[in-house]
């Protein structure tokens, strides 16, 4: 009955990515997403949490149950005070990576979720918010 409607996970070590995934899986299941959508949301969270860890060193993931026009959903917000992303549209391009990745993380997460917002400026950190709405 007393469903928790938000939470927070600190991301500072590699294994925190796993904790973030677990928290998101639980939250998404609670919101009532189907198995495939739960997998989509958890996978997107995993990509974003790993980016936070890899590029900013540390940060926080907030998750919130939300509602829009009677549709329930889940919002995930990743906040870090790292170096920031100089060119957001470039970072969203498939295959673009400054690390040793394939550059699939950001564009992939965007496709898996219904909505993605990136706020970032060099030296001011990065905030990435993604949302997914339950189908009917």
């Amino acid at each position: 009955m007393t469903a928790v409607s938000q939470g927070e996970i600190q991301i500072a070590t590699e294994s925190d990515i796993l904790l973030a995934r677990r928290a998101v899986r639980e939250a998404a299941t609670q919101v009532g997403f189907g198995a495939t959508d739960v997998t989509r949301i958890v996978t997107a969270a995993s990509e974003l949490a790993r980016n936070t860890f890899l590029y900013a060193g540390r940060g926080t993931m907030h998750w919130t149950r939300c509602e829009l026009h009677g549709r329930e959903g889940l919002e995930l917000k990743f906040v870090d005070k790292g170096p920031g992303i100089p060119d957001i549209s470039l970072a969203l391009q498939e295959g673009y990576s400054t690390g040793k990745g394939l550059g699939m993380g950001l564009p992939g997460a965007k496709r898996l979720m219904d909505d993605m917002d990136i706020q970032s400026a060099p030296g001011h950190g990065t905030t990435i918010t993604v949302k997914k709405w339950r189908k009917t």
């Binding site: 198995a35 495939t36 739960v38 997998t39 989509r40 996978t43 990509e47 498939e94 699939m104 564009p107 992939g108 997460a109 496709r111 898996l112």
Partner: peptide, 14 residues
């Protein structure tokens, strides 16, 4: 591989 995992992997472009 589970169906949900295969769908997600395809969508993400893996």
């Amino acid at each position: 591989m589970r169906p949900a995992v295969a769908i997600t992997a395809t969508q993400i472009g893996l």
